[in-house]
């Protein structure tokens, strides 16, 4: 039996179908699309919270989505040990829901930015990043207006000490630039994981570069890592 994956669809999600498509392109398995009003989910092994503008990003990105009925199920599955990944708006929702620490602020230059950036894999010993080499440098697109990661000093220290900063913005050579990457993120943080190691949030879009035809495949190992870690658990 293969792992069961789902993508949550909030009103205003717009990368929901992209996530399902990338999952299928990489793993050969379909992912269910789950409407946010669902209040009872089967025990999915992997849940993706996709990018987009849930509830129009009104009030604050992710601030309304965290109250959707489906979120208590996401929380239940996270506690159960299912893998949860929030991409872009999904990352914002995870921080609003308290499943990940910190917050995402308006980009430093106040503009929406859509472009490829480079990331350094800081920890390749997670279920999400095992497919990458140590310190691997990836090229993945960002597309957000509110991606500046921030957290209080104690929280930052906890992330750093726990090896929970998973991705940092970097130059093509893998060296960390000054000044918070493209969006002004604290400590150049692009992606973090929870303490238990099963909930990942990241601003860049791995689903957008998981097929050679689209210009790159650096997102592919991420989906594959999750799939293989789950397949291992299943075998």
């Amino acid at each position: 039996m293969s792992p069961k994956a789902a993508v949550v669809v909030f009103p205003g999600s717009n990368c929901d179908r992209d996530c399902a498509r990338a999952w299928e392109a990489v793993t050969g398995e379909a992912a269910d699309l789950v409407w946010h009003k669902e209040s009872a989910l089967p025990d999915y092994d992997f849940i993706m919270l996709p990018g987009g503008f849930s509830f129009g990003d009104y009030l604050r990105c992710g601030a309304i989505a965290r109250f959707s009925p489906v979120m208590s199920e996401v929380r239940r599955l996270a506690v159960r040990g299912s893998r949860v990944m929030g991409i872009c708006n999904g990352f914002q929702i995870l921080t609003e829901a308290g499943l990940l620490p910190g917050a995402l602020r308006r980009n430093r230059d106040l503009l929406f930015i859509c472009r490829d950036v480079h990331l350094r894999v800081e920890n390749n010993r997670t279920d999400f990043t095992r497919g990458y080499g140590p310190g691997a440098v990836l090229r993945l697109p960002i597309a957000h207006g509110e991606g500046g990661y921030t957290i209080d000093p104690r929280g930052l220290k906890a992330l750093q000490d726990g090896d929970r900063v998973i991705f940092r913005y970097a130059g093509p050579d893998g060296l960390t630039p000054e000044g918070g990457g493209p969006n002004g993120s604290l400590d150049e943080i692009a992606g973090i994981i929870n303490e238990a190691g099963n909930v990942l949030g990241l601003m860049p879009h791995p689903e957008r570069l998981s097929e050679a035809l689209l210009g790159g495949e650096d997102g592919r190992p991420l989906f594959l890592s999750v799939f293989q870690s789950l397949a291992g658990a299943w075998s």
């Binding site: 990368c15 992209d18 498509r21 929406f112 930015i113 859509c114 597309a143 879009h205 957008r208 210009g215």
Partner: peptide, 25 residues
């Protein structure tokens, strides 16, 4: 200009903005 636009969502953009024409799959 075009970096303020999400030009990749949908997973179809094969030739991105900046050239003569965009190409989608």
């Amino acid at each position: 200009v075009y970096e303020q636009y999400d030009h990749l969502v949908g997973l179809n953009t094969v030739i991105r903005p900046g050239g003569d024409a965009a190409v989608l799959r």
